[in-house]
Design a protein around this nucleic acid. Sequence first.
DNA 1: GTCTTGTTCAACCATGAGGTTGAGTAAACG
DNA 2: CGTTTACTCAACCTCATGGTTGAACAAGAC
Lengths: 126, 126
Amino acid sequence: MVEQDDRLSRVFSALADPTRRDMVARLAAGDATVNELAAPYDVSLQAVSKHLKVLEEAGLVSRSRDAQRRPVHLDAEVFDLMTKWIERYRQQAEERFQRLDAVLARLQGKASPADERPERIEGEAG
Amino acid sequence: MVEQDDRLSRVFSALADPTRRDMVARLAAGDATVNELAAPYDVSLQAVSKHLKVLEEAGLVSRSRDAQRRPVHLDAEVFDLMTKWIERYRQQAEERFQRLDAVLARLQGKASPADERPERIEGEAG
DNA sequence: GTCTTGTTCAACCATGAGGTTGAGTAAACG
DNA sequence: CGTTTACTCAACCTCATGGTTGAACAAGAC
């Protein structure tokens, strides 16, 4: 919205498109030219070129020169950025889930769980 | 574009927005109501409600009922979907990189690497 | 019942994304 | 040189998205 401020937004946004994910999948098997990449899709070469630009600006691919060709190469490093973000919050959420489980188990022994309103387990959100 | 066909597109798309990623981060610390979630942002409650709808449709959060409140809960499972996709292609890309490294190392012993045009290492893309 | 609180729905507006076509550039080929 | 190949840039169209405001609904509080 702000014009895609941060790197992470650009990466997620780039991979939100099925065509672009498909291109990444293809590129994981080896570098390819724009024409080669365009072949499977029923869109213009220009559209593919645009997709590649998006992937490039997200840092997912880089392009070199080989005569008139512009071979596209997949850069795997950015994936780490996403993985780290995802893992971080997934782990937090799962830990919280474990704790909730424990709390519920404890409550089962003491009283009815209906008494409890587990909006916060022991954490803080602000 | 097609109207966000698959699950993966919805998840990536949902997380492409910094505000929504921020909400996910907040929710990783514990469930929260719409009002609580809206507090830090300078947008209307309705806008926040919309963001939550997007996160919900992506399967990232679920909403329950507590009187007039609609507590929002982070569902960590969908993260796996992303992680799997990412890891799959990252690994392929990295393996390819290893192979390229090996090829270059071999070439160093034989001839000048400038002779080689390594558009494909040994793979296929079609 | 009416009021207040919490949230969603509906209509609208501005911007951006993905698609198109047509022209322009870059480098090999003849 | 002009032509062909490979690609990008520019202008345009359409629709989705994120924001707005105002009204509606749902449920406790008075």
